[in-house]
Simulated scan of single mutants.
Amino acid sequence: MKKAILCFGDSNTCGLNPVTGKRFEGKVRWPLVLAEMLGDQFTVIEAGQPNRTLVNNPPFIGELSGVSYLKPLLEAHSLAVIIIALGTNDLKQRFKLTPEQIGQGLTNLLDSIEEFYEGNKQPKLIILSPAYVKCVGQYKHVYEGAPSKNVALKKEFENIARAKKNYFCDLQQSITVSAIDGVHIDADGHAKVAALMCNLINEAYA
């Protein structure tokens, strides 16, 4: 039986192209590139949703944007791995959240996953810290103040992942967001994320 991997994230998991504002085609998006790298032993489930947050549900989008949408995915699939790629949208200026508050949102999500699988085998969890958000382009004012929180947020996520004995990947070290909008990753970034995830998953099943 194939091992199922759930990629649960925001617009960078969905594959938003920073140049066009539309979605990259499948051969570019990191979850599907990951599927190609891993081969027939695994099946990859894309679950990226623009504006998805850890702490707040953005207005007008509804439940799909919040972490509450994770439970139906857990119920629908027998998962071997869950990749959590969230936190970028929580840095938006209007939320006024500290890295610690965003980290608490991640902790709450991980606690909910543990509760869901209580008494049963839990999937392996991989936590990604967001890439380093910049204040440029059309999102300059949306993410005002985010650069001063980037490093602290990464440390929060790393500490939480280690405490939970989950796998951790620091995207700030490996991935650069687009200079056009300061938030989204380009095709090269998607390829790098896929390679990082492939290495971690192969390590987990070595």
Rank of each mutant, 00 (worst) to 15 (best):
Q41H: 15
P50M: 09
K121F: 02
F24I: 10
E63N: 14
E115V: 10
G103E: 02
P58K: 03
T43E: 13
V67R: 11
L54N: 08
T107W: 03
I45Q: 07
L74I: 04
S78T: 11
Q93Y: 07
N89C: 06
T43F: 12
K71T: 11
L70R: 02
A35N: 12
G103V: 01
F116T: 01
N57T: 14
K22Y: 15
N56I: 07
K121Y: 06
E118W: 01
P123L: 06
K121E: 15
Q49E: 13
V44W: 08
F116I: 00
W30C: 11
G66D: 02
L32D: 13
K71P: 03
K124D: 14
H77W: 14
T107H: 05
K121P: 02
L38Q: 10
L74E: 05
A85C: 12
T88A: 14
K71Q: 11
L54P: 09
L97F: 02
A76V: 00
H77G: 00
G66Q: 02
L97K: 03
E63G: 08
V81L: 00
G62N: 01
I82S: 01
F42P: 05
I102Y: 04
L73C: 02
P31Q: 05
A47F: 12
G103F: 02
F24V: 05
G87M: 00
N89P: 04
G66S: 15
L34K: 10
D40M: 13
V67G: 02
G62Q: 01
K27D: 13
I113W: 10
G26Y: 07
S68A: 13
L79C: 07
N89G: 09
T53G: 15
L74D: 06
L73Y: 03
L64C: 09
F24A: 01
L32W: 11
K121Q: 15
L91F: 10
Q104F: 05
T98W: 05
E36Q: 13
F60T: 11
Q41I: 14
S68T: 12
G87Q: 04
L109S: 01
I113M: 03
T98V: 05
K96I: 01
I84M: 04
I113N: 07
N57C: 13
G26M: 12
K96V: 04
V33S: 04
P31A: 08
F60I: 11
V44I: 06
Q122T: 10
E114Q: 15
R23F: 09
P31C: 08
L32S: 13
L109H: 05
V33H: 09
